[in-house]
């Protein structure tokens, strides 16, 4: 008999882990809260650093899960431990008995309206990184043709007052990628990135930065302090150009906020039922931060992806694969008699 494994979350981490576990011969039940699988990947247009279409990546992930039992629009209603296994009651009425559980609940995007000074939800030309991806995806153009567009890095990240002192890792590269895309669409527009540090740590990310510079994107080192509307419905943006120690102001037609990553609320609810511990940043804490990143302190419960902190997509996929290995080992050691 195949052992049941419950995967919580149908984003990149959940899909990749499910595909690998299926290949290892397990019976996978994957649950996803949304109507569609894919998580944030399904909402994105193109991926840094090379501009690969997100849909292409998602399609490849979906191709590999043909035998996985997926329940979309499904939540965990209750979950507890029975003997060595997990007993989960799903919102669709089905009960699952699983020998291992993978938490792949990912992240929520920081609610940008909380940073009121940026005017998200107040001025319609203040949007988020995710909104811009949606516009790209739907090939929706910005009208009238913008003369100037700005990107604000670290919105809801590196910000204790917003409840998140950590860096969200992906938004610098996202901002620079989006700045390049905007510049390609509107070559005559002035494009500004307001940053504190540029964290272009990955392979070819620095090339992306150089590409943005060469295309004329202006990088201003300083955090935007406030945004106001002008009489002609544009945005007045204030920051300090900290490299010259002078306040700087500029009028823009659109401002894109790089909203960071917060722990998934839905994942948190499941975590509470299982007494999973979180770190100060709200993300789940792994068994140890170096050698057992995929394990939790609860035997049989594993983690993959951004539920343990902000991660890039390739890192998430790596974690999904290594979680599959860890789960395989756990099942063999605990359930399969030699």
């Amino acid at each position: 008999m195949k052992n049941n494994i419950l995967v919580i979350g149908g984003g990149a981490a959940g899909l990749e882990a499910a595909a690998n576990l299926e290949r290892l011969g397990y019976n996978i039940i994957l649950i996803e809260r949304d109507k569609q699988l894919g998580g944030h990947l399904a909402k994105w247009d193109r991926l840094f650093p090379d501009g690969l279409p997100a849909q292409e990546v998602l399609d490849s992930l979906l191709d590999n899960i043909s035998n996985v039992k997926c329940f979309t629009e499904t939540d965990i209603q209750a979950i507890n431990i029975l003997d060595k296994s997990f007993n989960a009651i799903l919102s669709n009425g089905i009960t699952v008995l699983a020998d291992a559980v993978l938490m792949a609940s990912g992240f929520d995007i920081f609610p940008a309206a909380k940073k009121e000074e940026y005017g998200y939800g107040i001025y319609e030309n203040v949007i988020t990184n995710q909104d811009l991806e949606q516009m790209f995806k739907q090939q929706q153009s910005i009208s009238p043709i913008p003369r100037a567009i700005g990107f604000v890095h670290c919105v809801g990240s590196r910000d204790e007052k917003a409840g998140n002192p950590a860096c969200s890792k992906v938004c610098c590269a996202t901002a620079v990628k989006q700045a390049c895309e905007v510049k390609e669409l509107y070559p005559d527009a002035d494009v500004y990135c307001f940053y504190m540090d540029l964290r272009m740590f990955g392979r070819r990310y620095e090339d992306l930065y150089l590409k943005a510079q060469k295309s004329g994107v202006r990088f201003i080192r300083g955090r935007v302090s406030e945004v106001a509307q002008t009489a002609d419905n544009r945005l007045l943006v204030k920051a300090e150009d900290t490299l010259s120690s002078k306040p700087v102001r500029v009028n823009l037609d659109m401002l894109v906020l790089m909203a960071g990553m917060r722990p998934s609320e839905a994942g948190h609810k499941v975590g509470i039922q299982l007494n999973l511990t979180t770190e100060d940043d709200g993300f789940f804490s792994a068994k140890d931060g170096m050698l057992s990143l995929q394990k939790s302190k609860l035997p049989g419960l594993f983690y993959a992806g951004a539920c343990t902190g902000a991660k890039t997509l390739p890192d998430t996929l790596h974690e999904a694969r290594s979680a599959a290995m860890e789960i395989d080992r756990y099942i063999k050691e605990n359930f399969i008699k030699k």
Partner: peptide, 24 residues
């Protein structure tokens, strides 16, 4: 303060055309 709305961007573009590396 710096007001980027009325700053001279045209001359800088001229410079960038002659010296593209300035953008780097």
């Amino acid at each position: 303060g710096i007001n980027l709305n009325n700053s001279d961007k045209d001359t800088f573009s001229k410079l960038a055309k002659m010296e593209p590396n300035v953008l780097k």
